[in-house]
Each structure stands twice: as structure tokens, then as C-alpha cells.
């Protein structure tokens, strides 16, 4: 694959300050290209999630920098980073993190409403289309508590895709799902990468799922132990 790099970590180190400083990741160099579907794997505590948060601009590296489409994002202020997340990034977490008071449809509409690029009617149509894509159309008006774990996760993915982000970051998205639902989620990610050209970075410790991606990055004690 010879596409242009979408997101790059250059010499990234993240240390949690404190009486006993904790090094989360150490001197990471990683390039993810457009349309790639990669998995970050490793034992728990190896820094997988920390790296994902750094790539997702939720956290700021202590040393080094994160580049998005060639631009240094580490120099940006939090306001600008929030704007980038809204426009280009989509997150999926192990826990669905849906807003409990909003329906499935309402949850999917939130990022689009926040972005404010479309009218209310269009946003609703888009959101319904997204839910339909994951077979969740008929659950549109249910509250999260009325959905099963797999269904919630699909709604959460639909919400992550709401603003058609270039980069989707998933942190243990299948951690709470049975194998059937887990497989479905990975199929969705694969389809997004291969059909839509979106870039997907998944953190997982399930090796048989990680093997379905294009590339696995193995972390060990905060360093990259294997890449490929």
C-alpha cells in the first residue's frame, strides 16, 4: 500500500507526572496511512490505550509530536484539538458510553448537531441511514438501556461515524461482546477501511480478531516490540 500518511507519532513519549512518574509509552514512532486497518496489541498495561488516546488527541505527549495529515497537532491548543476531533476523528470505547437520556437516534445525531454543518432534517436522515447500515433502524427510538450490549456498541460505532471521520479509533470495542457480535464489529471496521477508505486503529487483546487487520503493532512495556 502506498497511500499518504494520515496520522503519525514521532518520537512520542508520555509520562504521567507524580511522586513516582509513570511512563505510559516510550519513544513511539508509528505511521498510519489512509485506508489502513491496524490493530494495536499487547498485554494489559503495555500502553495500548495510552497510545490510542495520544493518536486521538485526547492526551498530549510529554515528548515528541502527533502529526495529522502532515500538520503538527501537538502545538495546537485544546480548542483547536476539540475541533479536529469533531471534524476528523471518531471514537469507539469498550463501554458504549452512549448518553443514557438520549435515544439511539439522538445519540448518533449529537456529533452532527455539534458540527452544525447540516440542517436538522438532513441530520436525522443521515443518522437513520447510519443506523440502517448497522441493522439498527428499528431501534432508532429506543433508549440505550433498552438495547443489548451488541446493539449498543453498534449504535456507538454509528455515532463515531456520524461526521464521516477520516480516522476511527477503537479502544477494546469488543471487550464486552460475545464472539458473534465481536466478529460483526470487526467486519464493520474492515468494510469501512476497504470500502470507504477510512482509517481504523483498533486496540485489542484478542489475537484472532487482530489477525484480521492489515497490520498489527505489538506493544511491550510502552515500546513497539513488533510492527507488521
Amino acid at each position: 500500500m502506498n497511500r499518504k500518511p494520515l496520522i503519525e507519532a514521532r518520537d512520542v513519549t508520555r509520562v504521567l507526572p507524580g511522586p513516582v512518574p509513570v511512563t505510559l509509552v516510550w519513544d513511539i514512532n508509528l505511521t498510519v496511512r489512509q485506508g489502513e486497518f491496524i490493530a494495536i496489541v499487547g498485554a494489559s498495561g503495555s500502553g495500548k490505550s495510552s497510545l490510542l488516546y495520544l493518536l486521538g488527541l485526547l492526551d498530549v505527549p510529554t515528548l515528541g509530536a502527533i502529526f495529522f495529515e502532515g500538520a503538527n497537532t501537538t502545538e495546537l491548543n485544546r480548542e483547536a484539538q476539540a475541533k479536529m476531533r469533531l471534524a476528523h476523528l471518531g471514537f469507539v470505547f469498550q463501554f458504549h458510553f452512549l448518553l443514557p437520556e438520549f435515544t439511539a437516534l439522538g445519540n448518533v445525531m449529537i456529533p452532527m448537531r455539534k458540527k452544525g454543518a447540516l440542517g436538522e432534517a438532513e441530520i436525522e436522515r443521515e443518522a437513520r441511514a447510519l443506523l440502517a447500515e448497522f441493522g439498527m433502524e428499528e431501534y432508532a427510538h429506543r433508549l440505550p438501556e433498552e438495547l443489548s450490549g451488541g446493539e449498543r456498541q453498534r449504535v456507538a460505532i454509528a455515532r463515531a461515524l456520524a461526521n464521516r471521520p477520516a480516522l476511527i479509533l477503537a479502544d477494546e470495542p469488543t471487550g464486552n461482546l460475545d464472539s458473534k457480535n465481536a466478529q460483526q464489529v470487526f467486519d464493520i471496521f474492515k468494510r469501512m477501511a476497504e470500502k470507504n477508505g477510512q482509517t481504523v486503529v483498533v486496540v485489542t487483546h484478542e489475537t484472532h480478531l487482530a489477525r484480521q487487520t492489515h497490520r498489527q503493532v505489538q506493544l511491550l512495556d510502552g515500546r513497539i516490540a513488533a510492527n507488521g
Binding site: 485544546r78 476539540a82 470505547f93 463501554f95 449529537i110
Partner: peptide, 13 residues
């Protein structure tokens, strides 16, 4: 949690 997710979606402070 909601605040965290809203922030990750891109809600600014």
C-alpha cells in the same frame, strides 16, 4: 462519563 464522551466527540470546554 457523558462529559468525557462529549469531549472525545469534539465538544470544547
Amino acid at each position: 462519563r457523558d462529559i468525557a464522551i462529549l469531549k472525545s466527540i469534539g465538544f470544547n470546554e
